[in-house]
Amino acid sequence: MTTALITGASGGIGKAFAEELAARQTNLVLVARSEEKLNQLAKELQEKYNIRVDVIVKDLTETNAASAVFDATKSLGLTIDLLINNAGFGDYGDFAERDGEKQVKIVQLNILALVDLTHKFLPPMRQRRAGSIINVASIAGFQPIPYLSVYAASKAFVLSFSQSLWAENRRYGVRVLVVCPGPTETDFFTEADFPQSFTGKTNKISTAEEVVKDALTALEKGNSTVVSGSFLSKMITNLSALVPRDALVNMLEKQFKA
């Protein structure tokens, strides 16, 4: 049986990945800050699917968090066949008026932790000439988004970084995929502190399960990128190529202003 390590596994897309992979008889390593939620999910999946589920409780914004996670898998005697870098969060509002520490933590989690974990687990995959990495970005990564500036920029990094790794690692038998969901039924909007007035401004909402199935299908096909969501979500990813930059950002500023 193969083993997948999932960050941000306690809810949302990460939990949906865990449930889908468990149903496919994949052993799991679940990583997040919430010990209670992880243990409950691990218990449910072990009992339902008779698989091995290990839990690593870790705040990935902490110094040397990726090393701690990597070392923990070694101590458990595990080989990670699929790494899913899903952990991430955003913050809505005027950058100059938002909490500065929170903006830094977005970068630490969405970018630094993802890069560090990828660099820990990718070399062993290349040595084995087998393995897969899924990085969760967003359609926000295809263009700047005022009032969601740090989050969108972090996802643009994940998109570019992942596509580069896809090209670098094909010859080693390692698949790399970046999945870019549109609006999805998770706690993202609540945790990002979106105002109530923003409700209804988003296009069709996808389920986390739909995102996961799109991602796993694209991974099996060897794709570098998959945009998951409605037709409008897919159209949005092409706006930056069709609309002059200043006009695009001005339009988005009006759309995202509360």
Rank of each mutant, 00 (worst) to 15 (best):
L21A: 05
L177A: 10
N39E: 15
R128W: 07
I84C: 04
L41I: 13
Y151P: 07
F157T: 00
V53W: 07
K155E: 04
L232Q: 12
V211N: 00
T184D: 05
L41S: 01
K257L: 13
E210C: 09
Q46F: 07
L38S: 05
L28N: 10
G77I: 12
P144H: 03
V104N: 11
G88L: 01
L45Y: 13
L45A: 11
N110G: 08
F256P: 00
A22D: 12
F70H: 14
Q143M: 10
E62P: 04
L5R: 09
S160Y: 02
L177R: 04
G14V: 07
F95K: 05
M1D: 06
F194H: 01
F189S: 04
Q103K: 04
V115R: 03
A156V: 07
S67L: 13
K105F: 04
A23H: 11
L239E: 11
Y92H: 11
L159A: 09
A96C: 02
D187E: 15
L76H: 13
T237E: 03
V243G: 06
L60K: 06
N27R: 12
L219D: 07
G222D: 06
N64S: 08
K120A: 10
K204C: 08
R171D: 14
L82I: 09
A23P: 09
V227G: 10
R171Q: 13
R170W: 08
S206C: 01
Y151Q: 03
L248F: 00
P195N: 07
Y92V: 05
F95M: 03
F194A: 01
I106F: 03
R175E: 09
L219E: 08
A65K: 01
P244E: 03
